Lab assay of single mutants.
Amino acid sequence: TLFEALYDYEARTEDDLSFHKGEKFQILNSSEGDWWEVRSLTTGETGYIPSPYLAPV
C-alpha cells in the first residue's frame, strides 16, 4: 500500500525524512508506533516520518 503526505514536514533529527504535501511513500516498517520508516517515491530517500501526516493512496 502506498501512502501520500497530507502536510509538509521538516526533519528534526538525522533519522527523520523531510517531505512535501502530496509526496508518495512506500512503507518499510510501521511497527515502531507513530513513526514509520518509509522510502520516498519522489527522492528515493529513506527515513522516519510521523504516520499522522500520511493517508493511504
Results as ranks from 00 to 15, higher is better:
19 F>E: 00
24 K>R: 14
43 T>L: 01
34 D>G: 12
31 S>R: 09
16 D>C: 14
7 Y>V: 10
24 K>F: 11
10 E>K: 12
41 L>H: 05
9 Y>Q: 03
39 R>V: 09
54 L>F: 07
39 R>Y: 10
30 S>C: 13
1 T>C: 14
51 S>K: 11
34 D>V: 12
56 P>R: 05
14 E>C: 13
20 H>I: 11
53 Y>V: 06
51 S>D: 02
37 E>D: 02
4 E>L: 09
5 A>Y: 01
16 D>V: 15
4 E>Q: 10
42 T>P: 01
43 T>H: 03
44 G>V: 01
2 L>F: 10
36 W>F: 06
17 L>M: 14
35 W>E: 05
37 E>H: 14
33 G>H: 11
14 E>Y: 10
29 N>D: 11
5 A>Q: 01
52 P>Y: 15
28 L>V: 08
13 T>F: 15
54 L>G: 03
19 F>Q: 01
7 Y>L: 10
13 T>E: 09
38 V>S: 01
37 E>V: 12
21 K>R: 10
25 F>V: 02
54 L>E: 02
48 Y>I: 09
5 A>E: 00
12 R>I: 11
2 L>Y: 10
30 S>P: 07
11 A>I: 02
49 I>P: 00
11 A>E: 02
3 F>S: 01
32 E>C: 13
30 S>G: 09
21 K>C: 07
9 Y>P: 01
41 L>E: 07
25 F>Y: 01
33 G>W: 10
54 L>W: 04
31 S>K: 11
32 E>A: 13
11 A>F: 03
37 E>N: 08
22 G>E: 01
9 Y>G: 03
47 G>K: 03
55 A>F: 09
17 L>W: 07
15 D>L: 14
4 E>W: 10
36 W>Y: 07
14 E>Q: 11
5 A>C: 04
45 E>G: 08
12 R>M: 12
42 T>C: 11
13 T>W: 14
16 D>I: 12
27 I>K: 08
12 R>N: 10
5 A>G: 02
31 S>N: 11
39 R>N: 02
7 Y>Q: 09
11 A>V: 02
24 K>C: 07
11 A>C: 06
6 L>I: 10
33 G>E: 12
6 L>D: 02
49 I>N: 00
3 F>T: 02
21 K>P: 02
19 F>T: 04
31 S>W: 09
51 S>A: 14
19 F>M: 08
45 E>P: 00
40 S>H: 07
21 K>I: 08
3 F>E: 01
20 H>Q: 12
30 S>D: 13
16 D>S: 15
45 E>Q: 14
20 H>K: 15
30 S>E: 08
3 F>G: 03
50 P>T: 05
34 D>C: 15
25 F>G: 00
5 A>R: 00
9 Y>T: 01
25 F>P: 00
15 D>W: 15
10 E>M: 13
9 Y>K: 03
36 W>L: 06
45 E>K: 15
41 L>C: 13
19 F>V: 07
28 L>K: 02
39 R>K: 11
14 E>M: 10
53 Y>T: 04
48 Y>W: 15
27 I>G: 01
19 F>A: 10
16 D>F: 14
40 S>C: 06
51 S>Y: 12
25 F>C: 02
10 E>L: 11
24 K>D: 01
35 W>M: 13
5 A>V: 03
45 E>T: 09
8 D>G: 06
34 D>Y: 15
33 G>K: 12
24 K>W: 12
3 F>Q: 02
54 L>P: 02
13 T>N: 14
12 R>G: 09
49 I>Y: 00
7 Y>C: 14
13 T>S: 13
3 F>K: 01
52 P>I: 15
2 L>E: 06
57 V>M: 09
52 P>T: 15
40 S>M: 06
43 T>I: 01
57 V>H: 07
23 E>Y: 05
20 H>D: 05
35 W>Q: 07
20 H>E: 08
37 E>T: 08
52 P>D: 15
31 S>C: 12
17 L>E: 01
1 T>K: 12
55 A>H: 10
25 F>L: 04
6 L>N: 04
50 P>I: 05
19 F>R: 00
23 E>A: 06
10 E>R: 11
19 F>S: 02
2 L>H: 06
42 T>Q: 10
18 S>L: 02
36 W>S: 01
7 Y>P: 00
28 L>D: 00
48 Y>S: 05
48 Y>V: 08
2 L>R: 04
55 A>I: 13
28 L>G: 01
1 T>H: 11
3 F>H: 05
15 D>Y: 15
12 R>W: 08
13 T>V: 08
7 Y>I: 11
46 T>R: 11
1 T>A: 12
8 D>N: 09
50 P>Q: 11
1 T>R: 11
10 E>T: 14
53 Y>Q: 03
2 L>Q: 06
53 Y>D: 02
34 D>W: 14
35 W>T: 08
33 G>M: 10
54 L>A: 05
32 E>N: 15
28 L>W: 02
34 D>L: 15
2 L>V: 13
7 Y>T: 08
50 P>Y: 15
36 W>R: 01
38 V>W: 01
46 T>D: 03
4 E>Y: 15
17 L>P: 03
35 W>V: 11
21 K>F: 05
46 T>P: 01
56 P>D: 05
15 D>Q: 14
10 E>F: 11
6 L>V: 08
33 G>C: 11
40 S>Q: 07
36 W>C: 03
13 T>C: 14
57 V>G: 05
9 Y>S: 03
5 A>M: 03
1 T>E: 12
37 E>G: 04
17 L>D: 00
14 E>H: 12
52 P>H: 15
29 N>M: 07
56 P>Q: 09
15 D>A: 13
46 T>N: 05
56 P>E: 09
13 T>A: 12
47 G>L: 05
25 F>S: 00
10 E>V: 14
50 P>E: 07
22 G>H: 06
30 S>H: 09
28 L>E: 02
47 G>Q: 03
20 H>V: 14
19 F>W: 05
13 T>D: 10
52 P>C: 15
53 Y>E: 02
37 E>I: 13
14 E>A: 13
54 L>S: 04
14 E>W: 09
4 E>S: 06
23 E>F: 04
26 Q>T: 10
27 I>F: 10
